[in-house]
Design a protein around this nucleic acid. Structure first.
Lengths: 212, 212
DNA sequence: ACATTTACTAAACATTGTTTAGTATTTGAA
DNA sequence: TTCAAATACTAAACAATGTTTAGTAAATGT
C-alpha cells in the first residue's frame, strides 16, 4: 500500500505550510507578532494541530532561523567566488549587509533574537550545529588566511573580528534606523576600507559600490 | 501643610522602589522575565498599583534603558579624559566592551531590545532624545575629529563606524557566548588596532591591556 | 462636617503558549 | 469482513501574561 507514503507526503506538506505561514507572519508583522493561533488560522487548522508537527513555538522559530541562515549563505556565494581575497572580503561584507538590510526580520531572527544564534552555531549543547554555518564561517577564515597580515592574530580571530564589524553595522541600523545617520552601506565602506588597510597594511582606498 | 509634600515624597519613593524591583528582576532572570505581577509582588502592592506610577510595562523598561545608558556614560568618563586621541579611543572601546560584558542585561536592554535604543537616541518622534546620549556620542565625534584621518569620511561617520565595531563585538558575544571563540577583549584589541591603523595610517601595535 | 481627591485593591478581560480528553477516520491484520 | 490500534484532528480547558474596571477606604481641603 503506497497510501502510507501519501500520508507521509501530506504530513510533510502541512509542515511546510506551517513554516510558510510563520514566515509570512514574521515578514509582515515582525517576529513578536508570531503566534500559534495566527499560524493555525492561516493554515486553517486548530492551534493544537500545530503541535503534531512541531514541539513548540520555539521549534518553528529555530527552523526558520536555520533556513534564514541558509538563505544568507546562498546570498554570499557569488561574493565568495571572487579571486582576490581583499576584494572578496569587500564583496562579502557588502552582500552581508545588503542581506541584513533587505531581510530585517530574518536577520533579526538569526542573529539578534536571544537563543536562535546558538541553534545555528552550536553551543546549545543539545543540538549539533548546522554544517552550513561552519561552512559559511570557514569561508571567512580561509579568506582571512590568504591575507598578508600585519597584525598578530589568527585567521579565526580575523574572521571573527570582520564578522563582528559588519554585524555591528547591521544590528545597529536594524535596532535604530534613524540614529546612525549614515546608511549601512556608507558605514560598510568606511569600516571595510579601514579594517582591511589596518589588517594588511596595504593602502587600498577604492569603494566597493560597484555591485547593484 | 507639608503633608502634601510628604505624600509626593512617598509617591516618588514608591516609584523608585518599582524601578529598583524591575532592575533586580532583570538582573537576576533577564528582561523577558520582567512581569508586572513579579514587580508588584516584590514591592508588596497589587499589580494595578503599578499603573498609578507608570503608564505601562514599556514605560518602566524605557526608564531603565535611560538609566542604563547614563550608567554606561559614567563608566566611559575616565576613558574620555585621556589626552591622546588614539589612546583615548582605545580606552573608550575597552571600557565600552567591559561594561557590556559585565552588564549583559543592561546592555541588551539599551542596545539590543527592539524599541529602546530609539528612546535613548531619539527618532521616536514623540519623545525628545536624552541629552546624555548626544553628549556621549559627541565625545566620540570630537575624538574622531582630532585624528589625522587617511580616509574620506566625516568625524560623525568615523564615530558611527567605531561604535558599530564595538557594538558588533558585544552584541555578538551576548547573543552567542560560545561561538565567537575569542574573548570580547581579544576581539576588541584586534578590531581597535586594525581600525585605528587603517583610519590614521599610523602603525601603532601595542595592546590596551593596561587597565584592570 | 462633608464633598473631593488620592491611593489602592479585587476581580475581570483579552491574549498568549500549551495540554488534555475525546472523536472521527484510517490502517493492518484475523 | 471485522475490529483493535494507530493516526489526525478538535474543542475546551489551564495557566500566565498585560491591562482595565469598578469600587473602597482614607486623607485633604474648605
Amino acid at each position: 500500500m503506497g497510501s502510507s507514503e501519501r500520508r507521509a507526503r501530506h504530513k510533510e506538506e502541512l509542515r511546510q505550510r506551517i513554516l510558510e505561514a510563520a514566515r509570512e507572519i514574521i515578514m509582515r508583522e515582525g517576529f513578536e507578532a508570531l503566534t500559534m493561533r495566527k499560524i493555525a488560522e492561516r493554515v486553517e487548522y486548530s492551534p493544537a494541530a500545530i503541535y503534531l508537527h512541531f514541539r513548540d513555538r520555539d521549534e518553528i522559530a529555530k527552523q526558520l532561523s536555520r533556513e534564514g541562515f541558509a538563505e544568507l549563505f546562498r546570498a554570499l556565494e557569488p561574493a565568495a567566488a571572487v579571486e582576490d581575497p581583499v576584494e572578496r572580503l569587500r564583496r562579502i561584507a557588502w552582500e552581508y549587509i545588503r542581506f541584513g538590510m533587505e531581510n530585517p526580520e530574518t536577520y533579526r531572527l538569526i542573529f539578534m533574537e536571544y537563543k536562535y544564534l546558538a541553534v545555528v552555531f552550536g553551543g546549545d549543547s543539545k543540538e549539533r550545529d548546522d554544517p552550513t554555518s561552519r561552512a559559511a564561517f570557514d569561508l571567512l577564515v580561509r579568506t582571512a588566511a590568504e591575507l598578508s597580515l600585519q597584525v598578530d592574530a589568527t585567521p579565526q580571530q580575523i574572521a571573527e573580528t570582520l564578522w563582528a564589524a559588519v554585524h555591528g553595522i547591521v544590528s545597529l541600523k536594524l535596532t535604530c534606523p534613524v540614529f546612525p545617520m549614515s546608511t549601512a552601506q556608507e558605514l560598510e565602506s568606511i569600516m571595510t576600507s579601514a579594517l582591511l588597510r589596518g589588517l594588511t597594511g596595504s593602502g587600498q582606498t577604492r569603494t566597493s559600490a560597484d555591485s547593484d
